[in-house]
Amino acid sequence: MKRYKWILDIIITILIVVTLNFFIPRLMPGDPFMYLEGEDGHIMSNFSEGDIQRYKEYYNMDKPLLEQYIDYLKKLVKLDLGYSIYYRHEVSYLIKSRLKWTIPLVAISILLSSFLGTVLGLISAWKRGSFFDRLCYFIMIILNEIPSFLIGVLFLFTLGAKYKLFPISGGFTLYGNFVTRKEKILDIIHHGVLPSLTLMLVSIGDYYLYARNSMINILSKDYIKTARAKGLKNRVIIFKHMLRNGIAPILTRIFLSFGNIVGGAVLVENVFAYPGLGKMMQSSIKTRDYPLLQGIFLVTTLTVLVTTIIGDKINQILDPRLKNG
């Protein structure tokens, strides 16, 4: 029974987030309709009666709280996240449509940062104390501390606006006239360079420091000494002994640092006006599109929760000592 305790953990954690998501709009001062009815002096968009009706139906606040909660859970199970009045679409549809921008961005950044971080960390550990090691270490500590969206803003103004190397906003050229498919793909890649570069910086320091540490640790082990004494080539030691032993914990690190990357992605997408989920989250704040905002919150948070718990679990399998820690 104890072996499946972590599944219970996931369920409890998910329930907490889902419940939090349920209570947030209900604990806010006023209610989510205030904006729709235009009582607080904001510019009104022209919502039709039908739209407002659908909105109220989603929250159905005139029923008792328990009934609301059960209703909300039932809808969640059916993946019904409500209806966005601003975009006039199902929230789940909108989220899906934006994920095709966010997922590649996040995936490429994770690949780049984990690869570069590990390689640099390995070299640093190998040449510990050298100029390269100290410089790299210093830069990575700095990168680890500075919020990366601020570096993104710097990129935006220097590489984007000043030197015009990259487009300053969007995920593709609006109304672009692409003759071939290849041109279109190149255009999308061109737009993606700065956002993925910035997002890469969110976690590269983390991977580097982690890889450097664990490689230094491995280097002090007896089997490395034996390998050296046997006269094995450096190449063999690095690939066969260090990478093989060091790579698994770094891979689990990807799962564990997922929360940082999601938070980073929200900010980075807004710096570059990249048409992903984070950008939509920000615009839903502006338009007070509460169901949409909550839908995005739920999707991002639950994704992070599940990946983090999976990472924890893998970590425990790799290193049973952690179980009791």
């Binding site: 954690t13 604990l27 938070g263 929200v266 905002l293 995005i296 919150f297 983090t308």
Partner: peptide, 19 residues
Amino acid sequence: VLTIIPSLPILIIISSFWG
């Protein structure tokens, strides 16, 4: 529980509802 919930989305959603 609180450590694994990502902080930025939570900050965003609470402060946009509370004003």
